[in-house]
């Protein structure tokens, strides 16, 4: 039974997208489960896990936001935190093949769902020639792994007894591991020490606004260092 070329390439795009997203799905789904469990153990209703993961769809920000909303942090702090945590996404536009995704709605979804994982899967040179459907489907799949994992975790989480405590350590572990990976990629101990120093100063001086003060100090220090290095090009 011969199928039309367009039909067979459509099925093919779907299969390729499933394959593209598979490796990151192995990581995204269990992390989603961990997030969902944490949501219900924080005292929020299970569907908040679906709302956070489906609409914000930025893993590390969601973990952090959970702690911020439980402390009823000011909305301005939440905006600054979201900006700084997700600042890295602006660089994804430099290589993500959005030119392959036609139509305003498709473009809107494609930019909305441009997570770390979606970026990682499309970072290869070959991805610049991916079909529109393949790109959109792989983004849908990764979105589903994460949001599906979070919802699953939230529903399972209600079964875990309240005497089981300490799950919030997953957030500390997440950022520790990401810091180690970043340090391993850059080998820049001085920046790590600078950041830790800013955080400790903020912790001692403004414990109530640690995050905001630490980010401002750190950004200021980086800009100062950049200005100093530029004045002395031989050290650049």
């Amino acid at each position: 039974m011969p199928t039309s070329p367009s039909e067979s390439s459509r099925t093919n795009d779907l299969a390729l997208a499933l394959k593209d997203s598979g490796s990151v799905g192995l990581g995204a789904f269990p992390m989603g489960v961990a997030f969902g469990v944490l949501v219900v153990h924080s005292g929020l209703r299970w569907w908040w896990a679906s709302v956070f993961s489906g609409f914000i769809y930025a893993g590390s920000l969601e973990f952090l936001l959970l702690g911020l909303v439980l402390a009823t942090a000011p909305l301005a702090s939440i905006a600054v935190t979201a900006f700084l945590v997700n600042f890295r996404h602006i660089f994804y536009s430099l290589s993500f093949p959005l030119h392959r995704v036609h139509g305003p709605l498709a473009k809107a979804y494609s930019t909305f769902a441009l997570s770390d994982e979606a970026y990682a899967v499309t970072a290869s040179a070959a991805a610049q020639r991916f079909a529109r459907r393949r790109i959109l489907w792989l983004q849908v799949f990764i979105h589903l792994y994460w949001a599906g994992g979070a919802t699953t975790g939230a529903l399972l989480g209600s079964v875990i007894p309240a005497s089981v405590t300490g799950l919030d350590f997953a957030v500390t572990a997440l950022f520790t591991v990401l810091a180690i990976d970043a340090l391993r990629a850059r080998r820049d101990i001085r920046t790590a020490v600078l950041a830790a120093g800013c955080a400790l100063i903020a912790r001692c001086v403004f414990p109530g606004q640690l995050l905001l003060v630490a980010f401002v100090l750190f950004t200021g220090a980086l800009l100062t260092r950049y200005a100093l290095v530029r004045k002395k090009p031989e050290h650049a």
């Binding site: 952090l64 957030v171 950022f175 850059r186 920046t191 950041a195």
Partner: peptide
């Protein structure tokens, strides 16, 4: 420059925050 220096620093600050 910010792209290379920010991500790690942000992770360190976030880990400290938690």
């Amino acid at each position: 420059y910010l792209n290379t220096a920010m991500p790690m620093g942000v992770m360190v600050i976030l880990a400290t925050y938690t």
